[in-house]
């Protein structure tokens, strides 16, 4: 564990907290993409299958990972519940039209071609990594469709992007300190994912500087 990894994880937790705060305080999920949330649910449930096989008390890191995995899975499920049941009437279904089946299919094909080992567990893990790298696209697409972005929604995406950026620093750190060399899959997909956020960052920082609400072109 290093400071970049811990900082990244904490930003991830903050982003989830912001998302739930936004829904709870405004009693609305307007501006949020249910499709992105569903993709994250698929990502977490295919990646964290090791929850069933790993003893949480194996080490301090395993314990930490287990807590975080359960947190991500449950908050993700809760968000989907809020969007689909409690605040369903505020959900912007008309604009949330990104075709996620293509993303899922592409991630599945890539995972079948590129994986670390030929096991079901490893292929599902690779699938989750590929899918996570593009999971934010429906959300960005929805923001572009509707034009204006609520502050809290932009903070949410900003935190998610920050979390990804810190993970890159974490990988560089581990490359040199632990000589981890076989993580090309996570590194490559993580970099693609961070680049997708970079475009959003640009407009986010521009809107901060001008003290205006964020508007995507």
């Amino acid at each position: 564990m290093n400071i970049f990894r811990l900082g990244g994880d904490m930003l991830h937790v903050v982003s989830i907290f912001l998302l739930l705060l936004k829904i709870q305080t405004s009693h609305s999920c307007a501006g949020l993409s249910l499709k992105t949330q569903i993709l994250y649910m698929v990502v977490f449930s295919t990646r964290y299958l090791d929850l069933f096989f790993t003893k949480p008390w194996h080490s301090a890191l395993t314990f930490y990972n287990t807590i975080m995995k359960i947190l991500f899975l449950s908050s993700s499920a809760y968000t989907i519940y809020l969007m689909q049941k409690r605040y369903k009437h505020t959900y912007d279904k008309v604009h949330d039209t990104f075709r996620i089946q293509y993303l899922i299919a592409a991630a599945a094909v890539l995972a079948l071609i590129f994986h670390l080992r030929l096991t079901v567990f490893e292929i599902l893990w690779a699938f989750s990594v590929f899918l996570e790298s593009v999971a934010i696209l429906p959300q960005l697409f929805l923001l572009q469709e509707t034009g204006e972005v609520e502050n809290i929604t932009s903070h949410y995406i900003f935190c998610l992007g920050g979390y990804r950026t810190l993970y890159i620093f974490n990988w560089v750190w581990r490359y040199f300190t632990e000589h981890r060399r076989n993580q090309w899959l996570a590194w490559g997909c993580g970099t693609v994912q961070t680049l997708i956020y970079a475009d959003f960052f640009y407009y986010y920082i521009l809107s901060r500087k001008q003290g205006k609400k964020l508007r995507l072109p």
Binding site: D50, R117, E122, N182
Partner: peptide
């Protein structure tokens, strides 16, 4: 080699 060692991140 233990594959869980490879996936110690979130």
């Amino acid at each position: 080699e233990d594959s869980s060692e490879d996936h110690d991140e979130l």
